[in-house]
Each structure stands twice: as structure tokens, then as C-alpha cells.
Computed example of a mutant assay.
Amino acid sequence: MPTINVSFQVIPKVPDQDTYRVVDLAIDVVKKAGVKYEVGPMETTMEGELDQLLEIVKEAQQVCVEAGAERVMTIIKIDYHPQGVTMEEKVRKYRS
């Protein structure tokens, strides 16, 4: 299976003062998964195999619920190319 990119944003329904704490827990799921990732101001992008990355997204949603979210809206973007695609090839020209 090719290496792909999955970006996702979790939006947990929690009291405002708790939102960042719950989102941080979702990002911790990504960190512990051991995949290549980058955290941005609006979403987290990961690199790996599709099935593994989607499992990480599901775990991130679940940790939000376990942290008290009544509901979790998740926005997912998938960049799939049969020969694979990396985060580096997308941003290389912007980093010098």
C-alpha cells in the first residue's frame, strides 16, 4: 500500500475553556502512533498507510469523547497517489 497523507481536524463539543485541552489529547494519539506528522494551526497532517491513519483518526475522536466531549465533528482530507505522496514533496519549496 502506498504512503499517503491524511489531514484531520477534530472539533469537540466541550465548554470553551476545555477545547484546547481536549484537542491536545487527540494530538497525543497521533504522537503515540509513531507516524510522521505535522501539527498546524487548523489541522494535523500525517503520513503513512491509509488504514493505519484512519485508525488514528478514530482513536483521536474516541479520546475526545472519553475526555468529556458530547459530540466530535471531524474534518478529514486524504491525498492518495498510487505511487505514494509525502508531506515533504508538498512543502519542500517553501522551507529554506
Rank of each mutant, 00 (worst) to 15 (best):
V29Y: 11
M1H: 13
A67P: 00
E55P: 13
I56T: 01
Y94C: 10
Q52K: 15
L53G: 05
P41I: 10
R92N: 06
C64K: 02
K31T: 08
Y37D: 06
C64P: 01
L25C: 14
G34N: 07
V57G: 06
D28H: 13
Q61K: 12
S7M: 06
F8V: 00
Q62E: 15
E55A: 14
L54K: 04
D18S: 08
E59I: 12
K58C: 08
C64Q: 05
E55R: 15
S96V: 10
K90W: 01
V29K: 10
E70M: 11
Y20P: 13
M87W: 07
V35D: 05
V30E: 07
Q83I: 09
V14F: 02
G48E: 01
S7K: 05
C64N: 01
T74C: 03
E70S: 12
V35K: 05
A69L: 04
G68H: 07
T74G: 00
L53Y: 02
A69E: 04
V91W: 02
T3W: 08
Q17P: 11
E43L: 10
G68R: 07
T86E: 01
D16C: 14
T3S: 10
P15E: 06
I56W: 03
P15C: 07
I11G: 00
L25T: 13
Y37M: 00
A60D: 07
D28C: 13
T3K: 12
V14R: 03
A67T: 02
P82R: 09
V63F: 12
P12Q: 01
K58V: 07
P82Q: 09
K77C: 11
M87N: 03
R21M: 12
V85Q: 09
V10C: 02
Q52A: 14
V85A: 08
K36E: 00
G40Q: 03
L54T: 04
S96N: 09
Q52H: 13
E70Y: 10
V29M: 12
M87Y: 07
G48W: 04
A67V: 02
Q17S: 14
